[in-house]
Design a binder for these strands. Sequence first.
DNA 1: ATATTTTACGCAATCGATTGCAATTTTTAT
DNA 2: ATAAAAATTGCAATCGATTGCGTAAAATAT
Lengths: 343, 343
Amino acid sequence: MKKVKRTTIYDIAAKLGITASSVSRALNNSSQVNEKTRELIIKTADELNYKRNTLASNLRKGHSKTIGVVVPRINQNFFSNVIAGIEETTYQKGYNLIICQSGEVHDKEIQCVNTLINQHVDCIVISVSADSYDYQHLQNVLDHGIQLIQFDRVAEELETLKVINDNEQASFEAVSHLIENGYKRIALLEGPQNLNIFRQRKNGYLRALETHKVKVIDELVVENAWTKELGAEATRKLLNLPHPPDAIFASTSDFSALGVLEVANVMNIKVPSELGICGYSNEAFTEITSPSITSIDQFSVYMGKTIGNLFFQENANTEVSVKPKIISIKPELIIRGSTAKKG
Amino acid sequence: MKKVKRTTIYDIAAKLGITASSVSRALNNSSQVNEKTRELIIKTADELNYKRNTLASNLRKGHSKTIGVVVPRINQNFFSNVIAGIEETTYQKGYNLIICQSGEVHDKEIQCVNTLINQHVDCIVISVSADSYDYQHLQNVLDHGIQLIQFDRVAEELETLKVINDNEQASFEAVSHLIENGYKRIALLEGPQNLNIFRQRKNGYLRALETHKVKVIDELVVENAWTKELGAEATRKLLNLPHPPDAIFASTSDFSALGVLEVANVMNIKVPSELGICGYSNEAFTEITSPSITSIDQFSVYMGKTIGNLFFQENANTEVSVKPKIISIKPELIIRGSTAKKG
DNA sequence: ATATTTTACGCAATCGATTGCAATTTTTAT
DNA sequence: ATAAAAATTGCAATCGATTGCGTAAAATAT
């Protein structure tokens, strides 16, 4: 099964007693080939089970019709949804996706990016890993004339196309919602502050407090409560405080929020009457916990589609691109049982 | 930003007054190049920010170091996990993944496969879509000398490498578990029977009944209860039967099982005392419903890793491959609250 | 110092498809 | 029937890297 000689345009040409040029032209719908010979060529190509060698074609044409995607983890809901969205829009235009996962490790992220540059991808779509500390590798992408689109977690200082959520506003609305529902002492579980998204979410939290003239209490802000376990741990500490919070905004993820809920259950603290909980991401499970968890939907598949469309739109521009475009998608607060103090 | 001329081995050669051959050899760690010139070459390559053109390299070498993956949906837990597993094992050997989603549509699946053949991928990994009715396109992959690995949903009649779950055994154990826990009338929600996995699961169900001398009741077997909604609908019908079941095995998915649970709640039927529920896939949420749902873990990430390893293992064999290998992974029954009749 | 083996490097073809330009054939105009 | 224009097709270079073969240079042996 190894050494199968695949048929090339030369084979077709030979069989028909013509040149590979004509075959190539026929197969590419060039107008400069006779209709009858085209039909003949296509027929024999079919007979010989010809499949174009995209490698050769791309090498000659100088592009790969391929888009590289780098995400921390493929099998994380948000990312797999974004990827699905990208795939959907790009596939129909004949583009393929090469997927890499950085595993939240900066060095692997660099490796991935380099591989993609080697592959001559036409565009790299990336959401940086949590421990990224410098962005030389991304600058390098630009230097190689490769389109770069950052999404969600972005290096703000780099002038590239960006597709992001308006995290600040979403957080603002979530916390405002908590305040308006009568919660007074709202804790924040925050993520690594080197990532823009977590900074923004914190800002939204702070702005909401300020707007509603609620004092910020430092001990209610917990760093790096990222996972369910860390969320649970943070919650235990918070609820054992002399002045415990009456609501927790798990700005890091719904998993974290789930940790909060489980600890509340164990400690026999009633949600939502004694403790309000709001998560982030609108994972499927938020709907089926009891009570269900208020969360924020990021429209991840739509985000993916937006990325795909942005790429084509920018590519259509033969002009020098205008200033780096930033598309911000407004997330939606999904109100559920876990924040229904009044109700 | 468009027309960036990338540096090639010729540029490096020119700058150093040597030939591209030597540059190529140096960069490929060939032994037939002087150590000092190699260092010099690598140094200048670095200075000029050289990145190998993988297209050219692969064209010449006759392979692409790329593996194509076709799944119904990327953003379905099981599949994204398998993909993550494949990526992990293949990435470290320098292979890239091209991902396509068939969207459960046969024609798109064919398109995807053809694209991948064009791309000269070294291997195609596929889980066929639900409405696949013929497998000419897969035969075609083989005819082009491309390694083909089917997983989970496979065309059994095709002699290819396969990595599957032992669905039959898993189902058998799940249903046996229900019987042993005292459930007498066990309904089955089954999936499209053109897919091997659902046939096997049904077989396991039947074998369990037979083994425990329980009579099969036709009206308790419901076709195509695939999604949460369909699961719910089927449940409504089942529970309104003159002789309703006292357990439902949602062999299609945990989502279906979730539909069952929700309907049971609405109808005020107590789970697990009045109705046992078992799902399939061990989705994250099965753990957090109340009661939590008994399910079957498929070890999806591990499955992905197995696929990756199988590819390399087969590729190492320069010999003609032995008879098509089938690797079966034993799923694990995860017993939770929804089937604890006795407890 | 000469012969022989190694080592290092260059030459040129190759992978398969594309494309500018030239050559030929066909069509249309005169 | 002849000239001019248009439509087809062929020729040959090109994309960038790799590699078999040959030769020059260096290292080793005699």
